[in-house]
Write a protein that binds this DNA or RNA. Structure first.
Lengths: 216, 216
DNA sequence: CTCACAAAAGTTGTATACAATACTGGGAAT
DNA sequence: ATTCCCAGTATTGTATACAACTTTTGTGAG
């Protein structure tokens, strides 16, 4: 049976606004007027409010007092900060995942890694975007197997923000993609060995390397 | 000039519900019915909804789909999980803070540490609660000086949850308090030396020690 | 021209009513 | 007895109206 899965208005609003922030239609500092967004999306202000709160918690939107919300400013320094935090937390998560990940989990990682390599080789016009999505899934799998729901929740905002930043500043350039693929395959090996220290170190390397995409 | 600072209904609702969760009036698994809470607090459902969303993001409330929200279940294993995550994140924060903290920041830390020692010595009936509050402030100061707003935001839910857990399971027993004071003074020394590795290590020690309060 | 200030417009916060969904209990089929 | 299903009730989701607050605009004094 096909699940047409009716979505709540709040969810629709959330996706809509999120998309517009990620694709750059709504740039840093742009005001998010509830009324306007509601009219644009075709729902009332109530679900829009919910969506904005959610986006605020995820760090994509800034709001304070009774003032109008705006798209949060993502400076270059924030990119650095995100990478550093992710290097710290995801390596921790990788270490935990090493001893907990299931064979199915590893198979899933391999599937995504393979897809990413294909994307890099085909090198279509949207390669960077496709890669970015797959990459997020890859990292999400690892977090899911870290056996800590709280950690998973804590990381979400960080991943969100970086999704925006990557697409905006094109941090994922060609050179970097092939290197990432190599890191991913190494990571998978560490997981297969169920070696926490290796997995942790490998993940840290991966993140810190991504932080400096320009370096030869 | 005295700021009477009129609070929004949403803020009032948030504080009210949060308090009831922390002091145990609302126990794990209790249903949070918007209508009832609204009547009890004396506001409409709208700000109550906002408050519940906020509490959900902070990890104190669980909700999914259109089902009614409930007070999240805080198992013993979650306590362990929180301590582990905090050991990881706060030691990282402490390392960063070591090179960034100002003399004023250090003075503030000392002030709080001293107050905590007094509380432990006086040993009044509410010593544990007072200590817990001061302790939170102490750790908050360090996070504030880590120079990473994102990290600060990420930690908030973790601190919140633990506040509940500590009060509920009385993790802060006498033995543990004096030990914590000792750790705090050591931490301050590390900050005064502006030694990241020392501060980080000391904080990790502190958190992992707190995780096992029973050990002699 | 610039500043201060007040009026007007714009926007968010809250309350309330209704719609959609989830929960509860009892009765029928097995 | 047990399971399934249905209707009735409870609760949440959404829309709308109004109140409170914020921002902009316009006007006059210096």
């Amino acid at each position: 049976m096909i699940q047409t899965q009716k979505q709540s208005a709040a969810e629709v609003a959330y996706r809509h606004i999120r998309r517009r922030i990620i694709d750059g239609t709504l740039q840093s500092g742009a005001f998010l007027i509830e009324q306007d967004l509601a009219a644009e999306i075709g729902v009332s202000r109530t679900p829009v409010r919910d969506a904005l709160h959610r986006l605020e918690n995820e760090g994509l939107v800034h709001a304070e007092g009774n003032k109008r919300a705006m798209v949060r400013d993502f400076s270059e320094s924030e990119v650095e900060e995100c990478f550093e935090l992710r290097a710290q937390f995801e390596s921790f998560a990788a270490g935990r995942a090493a001893t907990r990940i299931t064979p199915e989990g590893i198979a899933e990682l391999k599937r995504h890694a393979t897809r990413m390599e294909e994307v890099v080789n085909d090198a279509g016009p949207e390669a960077a975007l496709k890669f970015s999505d797959l990459n997020d899934l890859f990292h999400a799998i690892i977090l899911d197997h870290a056996g800590s729901p709280r950690l998973r929740e804590l990381m979400r905002p960080l991943m969100q923000v970086q999704l925006v930043l990557m697409k905006r500043y094109r941090h994922t350039i060609e050179m970097h993609l092939t290197r990432s693929c190599w890191h991913h395959s190494e990571l998978i090996r560490a997981f297969e060995a169920h070696d926490p220290a290796w997995a942790e170190s490998q993940m840290r390397t991966h993140m810190l390397s991504a932080k400096n995409p320009g370096a030869a």
